[in-house]
Nucleic acid binder design. Structure first.
Lengths: 181, 181
DNA sequence: CTCAGCATGTAATTCGTTACATGATTCA
DNA sequence: TGAATCATGTAACGAATTACATGCTGAG
């Protein structure tokens, strides 16, 4: 469960509540979790049992008590251990690529239509990503801003841009009057 | 459940048993499923209930009966419907990129070591992928060999190669005597 | 007065994995 | 004799999602 490690990472920059974490997850485009409370509160419970985080319960009149979580030294060490472990290989999942494996089952024009719509959605998404890093680049608030981290984010976006380029090229090819086959 | 659609795709080239499908999934590097029987036999049951596939039970002495599944016209139509639907956006999941977001928590040398090992594993994987398409390119057996499908597979590999390039560059940068910071 | 936000959680469901169960055959 | 392949499945578990439940506050 990588989400626990990521929570440790987020807490390394300062104490947060479950609710804060939830927002971080749903706002961040890099973190591949939806920010659903089930997982987060469960993970926090387990991290607490393992002694990797402490919680400070802040009673406030007529409100549910805020539970502010902080890293323990043990938690900080667990984070560093993770950061020094060899990560799994990346997974590039693309429903589009799957679909194209059987593209010969439909008309070329149908495939072109699919690519048209896909390209539109994708380019919007990429624009969002670019905007996201642009806004975040100067500030240090959300996630680390070490030069390696910046490079990682840039690379991640570039992967999307690269994919978009390929979609555009393929779409253009399909729009030409066909000479082959 | 995209796996059902993919099963329809695989069956479109010819009838297969659950066991055949299982092998296709575990052998194929493009299909993001492990090929576990649980999912496959369950999916086949459901496809049968939906009338998208038929099964021909072949009794054989002292063996479990082979169940050969084939597409119905309805199943073929369901496949074409899927192929013409707009796919979800791709997901690039990389544990490495996540780790690098907090790279400032550890020594640069530690990050370099991580990248060293990662690069080794990744380059081996990429070599495997290249070999995989090379072996598969001339034959038509496994998955469609339409020019679009070929381009899709090529692109998929190129994504990995692109990622590998980036890892190498970053690793080299980290191996230099540091002047900044 | 309603809706968004704060803040905690639970429940139901889906999707996916590994491991297990059974039993024959073939090849080293 | 023992491992791999054929061929069907079940069980246990883990990871992730959406929807639900509760209740207060502040802004429009």
């Amino acid at each position: 469960m990588l989400i626990k490690q990521v929570i440790l990472g987020l807490l390394s920059a300062g104490s947060l509540t479950g609710y804060d974490l939830k927002k971080r997850f749903s706002n961040s485009l890099m973190l591949p979790w939806s920010g659903n409370s089930n997982q987060i509160y469960k993970a926090l419970l387990e991290l607490h049992e393992q002694g990797l985080v402490t919680l400070e319960e802040q009673q406030q009149a007529n409100k549910p008590p805020r539970k502010l979580y902080s890293l323990t030294p043990k938690g900080h060490q667990a984070l560093r251990d993770w950061l020094q472990s060899t990560p799994e290989l990346p997974q590039f999942q693309s429903p589009l690529l799957l679909q194209l494996l059987w593209a010969d089952q439909v008309e070329r024009s149908a495939s072109r239509d699919v690519l048209d719509k896909y390209e539109a959605e994708l380019s919007e998404h990429v624009a969002m990503l670019r905007e996201y890093v642009r806004r975040q680049a100067p500030s240090t608030s959300a996630v680390g801003e070490h030069s390696i981290a910046v490079s990682a984010m840039q690379h991640w976006i570039t992967l999307y841009e690269f994919h978009l380029d390929w979609v555009r090229r393929l779409r253009d090819v399909l729009s030409l009057p066909k000479e082959d086959e």
